[in-house]
Design a protein around this nucleic acid. Sequence first.
DNA 1: CATGAATGAGACTTCATTCAT
DNA 2: GATGAATGAAGTCTCATTCAT
Lengths: 196, 196, 196, 196
Amino acid sequence: MKKSKPKYMQIIDAAVIIIAENGYHQAQVSKIAKQAGVADGTIYLYFKNKEDILISLFQEKMGDFVEKIEQMIAGKEQAAEKLLVMVENHFRMLSEDHHLAIVTQLELRQSNKDLRLKINEVLKGYLQVVDKILLEGKENGEFSSDLDVRLARQMIFGTMDETVTTWVMNEQKYDLTALAGPVHRLLVNGCGNAGH
Amino acid sequence: MKKSKPKYMQIIDAAVIIIAENGYHQAQVSKIAKQAGVADGTIYLYFKNKEDILISLFQEKMGDFVEKIEQMIAGKEQAAEKLLVMVENHFRMLSEDHHLAIVTQLELRQSNKDLRLKINEVLKGYLQVVDKILLEGKENGEFSSDLDVRLARQMIFGTMDETVTTWVMNEQKYDLTALAGPVHRLLVNGCGNAGH
Amino acid sequence: MKKSKPKYMQIIDAAVIIIAENGYHQAQVSKIAKQAGVADGTIYLYFKNKEDILISLFQEKMGDFVEKIEQMIAGKEQAAEKLLVMVENHFRMLSEDHHLAIVTQLELRQSNKDLRLKINEVLKGYLQVVDKILLEGKENGEFSSDLDVRLARQMIFGTMDETVTTWVMNEQKYDLTALAGPVHRLLVNGCGNAGH
Amino acid sequence: MKKSKPKYMQIIDAAVIIIAENGYHQAQVSKIAKQAGVADGTIYLYFKNKEDILISLFQEKMGDFVEKIEQMIAGKEQAAEKLLVMVENHFRMLSEDHHLAIVTQLELRQSNKDLRLKINEVLKGYLQVVDKILLEGKENGEFSSDLDVRLARQMIFGTMDETVTTWVMNEQKYDLTALAGPVHRLLVNGCGNAGH
DNA sequence: CATGAATGAGACTTCATTCAT
DNA sequence: GATGAATGAAGTCTCATTCAT
């Protein structure tokens, strides 16, 4: 077997699988170590403690996430179009990685308040992407000029999150990506200067 | 001594306080018993086990919640108006009970999947209220006739939930009830037949 | 329903049933009270504590036992004949009360050392009956003159006990009373002055 | 530090001492761990749970027991002689390990029915040794040809067990090994073809 | 770098017994 | 005498983390 991956990512990938398949509270360090093919103690050469694995997991995966979203909306002109690309890819990327979807939507939320606050820190990068789209939309007249950016951002996140979570809880039985269009329309309507 | 409160509700109220102040994982049965002013063993005369306290807590509090919302929207004619009353009271009721807000938005989500599934059962009553409003709105022309009720419901819940959670995470520093109007406008826009 | 039985015996009979059906460690006072048709607290008007129920149970039932045995061997002349009557009735009485058999052979042995010492006190009455038979047998030449009465008594008890316990553990599937004859022969042989 | 004893046997030996000195129900895992000189958690690296310690204890000690008995009777010709060696060594081995005697005769019997059934499984090895002796005795004419092997075996076990238990309950005040001869005579008489 | 055996703190739940009614 | 709601002490087992090899 070739050691293509550094152990750091090996452990993070193992954590995603173990948490998805066993649940947050049954994801013992020893299980993760076994899945990663290393000794328990080795984990602590790469991570400060168990919480650090989870934060790192979220940073790595969510970092990819935001990076890809940013690349994809870079070429788009309109705010509404950018929003569509964002929703589409948000849904698509989680559709393509069932383990990750379970971990981010269900399991990681069982972490304690401290960990969740740190996860929120990581999410700020994503928030900024949305805020930028919303500001552009307000400036170029696509969105209502008196739109409350913070609230609109909470609507967008809340709606996407609720949609994905419901899909995961229904055991991913239907096609999530097909919902991107309709969800996008709801959100654009919400932000839009409808009455004008 | 007058039996002012039955012990059942005494224990549930104690659980809300203890969980809010100590966090889900630091809410030992002995702490709840002490706060309720009963012996540890007494808890088990009223609840099957610790999880049963939490489910019952959610049922009692959320039952009240849905009941009150239903009463308040009963007198309203328009779907949009009903939605406003719902958002206003959802925000107001959690504003008025800071402990309950912390418990429902942050702490109870740390419970395991089984408990969360049971909590979802309880939430179905609320879902049905929203669905009824949405259907009425579609029928009387307030909302778009091709509105996807399930997605719209997810938007409404997702947005309210995200808004309240953000407020709780910011330590309830600003006035949540003031956001009811703007949030309502976003949601009605989202559901509305804006372009028509 | 006529209160034919005083509550004292009512509780003891309930204890036999509950212990036989649930096992020693699952025989809570509250279960015994329910079976007896009295309140938990009532138990403590008739018995000092739980252990007292068990000792009393053994005393009452074993008292009957010894009394009946004594009556039945009273009319017999020979020691060997008395022994036969004893074994026959020991086996028969336990055969006729399956609950009592389970309680004395399996469940009551799970009690702690103190309780077992007290049970042994109760058994002394039985021991004396056996000793008397053995002495008679030695005097009239039926048994070996150098028979060690204490050891012979341990053989008799040990053999009867092991035989009954094995029968109970095999779920009382075969006819225990049919074994009285062969067992008696083993014991009489053991005590006998074979070589003379 | 030299690993003189594997921890597995260290823990079993500690369990024998703790149970003998404190009684079955006062033999907490933490006490056993302390006696064995390991941490509480270490117990669970070697045993599935507390019951597993007790089963293993019985298997290890009784395994030795049966093995030694078998070796010792291997050189003997006559069934009666084999029986004598068995009784002698049964008594001697328990005489030499007072702790073990208390544990097997008094404390382990307080275990629940499940554990006792597993203990019976272990005892089957011993039963077979006895059965073999009895069959040999019947074949070579030492014992009665119409001897019921199962009943005879129950007599032998029951008598030895009752004798040892009585000795333990009398706080091992007299010499158990001295009883081997007389007990053996009782048993051989019992099995013998006395009247022929 | 890597290992994995050992550590030890911490909490849910049961049930015999009491005592105010 | 009878009730039964309330009490509260006590023990098994898990698992993140360490450190000698």
